[in-house]
Amino acid sequence: MEAFLTSPLGVLIITVAQTLAILVPLLIAVAYMTYAERKIMAAMQMRVGPNMVGPLGLLQPFADAAKMLLKETIIPAGANRALFIVGPVLTFILAMIAWAVIPVNEGWAIADINVGVLYLLAISSLGVYGIVIAGWASNSKYAFLGALRSAAQMVSYEVSMGLVIVTVLLCVGSLNLTQIVLAQKTVWFFIPLFPMFVIFFISTLAETNRPPFDLAEGESELVAGFMVEYSSMTYALFFLGEYANMFLMSAMTSLLFLGGWLPPMDIAPFNWVPGPLWFILKICLVMFTFVWVRATFPRYRYDQLMRLGWKVFLPFSLGWLILTAFVLKVMGWLPA
């Protein structure tokens, strides 16, 4: 048995099983996130929300999925056919492969690589391509404007996100995600680095094109932005990718600032709960905040969005980075 598991075939089977073990729950979570989002927003706006399909509307996501699957895929005549398909596929794939390095518990990652944070940053910075390619290949004004907005927006917010991550890395001394979580055993980083936590969260909103930064799709001006020409499964792939990206960003926030799988305090009632459950709870908390923000805030104007990214977040996070380095050096807290 041992020999089989270390043979190439055995390794392949184990990897596939691990991949399914993370992707299947992720996709189910994505399906129910759409339901949860509609229900939460309904509650915040004193409506009922979906309640017709199944008990309490619980089968609504499956009804939506079936509808998406059965509709006809329309490719516009003027579109670049190959790239038109590549756009949504790329978005979906990128949202999935990033999960390879997320540790759910100590040692529970498909690939526990040394440069885990850089991998996540690289994958999330690629997300813009799906949108830009879709916008260009659609050969439509609205889609193109949406793609241009999205490209500028994502590049802007990545800069401050990178600086926030560097600040966390300074406190850890490693790029490994497991090490980052273990470094938070004494105190979760959102307490000493609270302003960075806020900036990171807002940047993740911009990075995932969520309200109040959903200018790429802004339905009142651009109809649906880069998604105008998409229908059925191609649209569903964008949808799945966007929600999986939200989960990914929530997982990143939990890992970097909320102590990953660690319980709030390492004492009796808390450490009975297994680590992965804590991790899932934290992801759900951040996801709830995503929805809460959507139900609360009006959309930003585009120049205000750019101003916030470049003139507020970037100088502030740069300053805080220098301050953190200074404090760590003076107090002698720099990790070896």
């Binding site: 440069v115 850089l118 690289a122 910075s125 690629l126 391509y129 830009v132 490209a151 590049v155």
Partner: peptide
Amino acid sequence: MILVIVYVGAVAVLFLF
């Protein structure tokens, strides 16, 4: 990773833009 982040994630995006 740096190649992907810097060239693909930033430089090529502006290029494509």
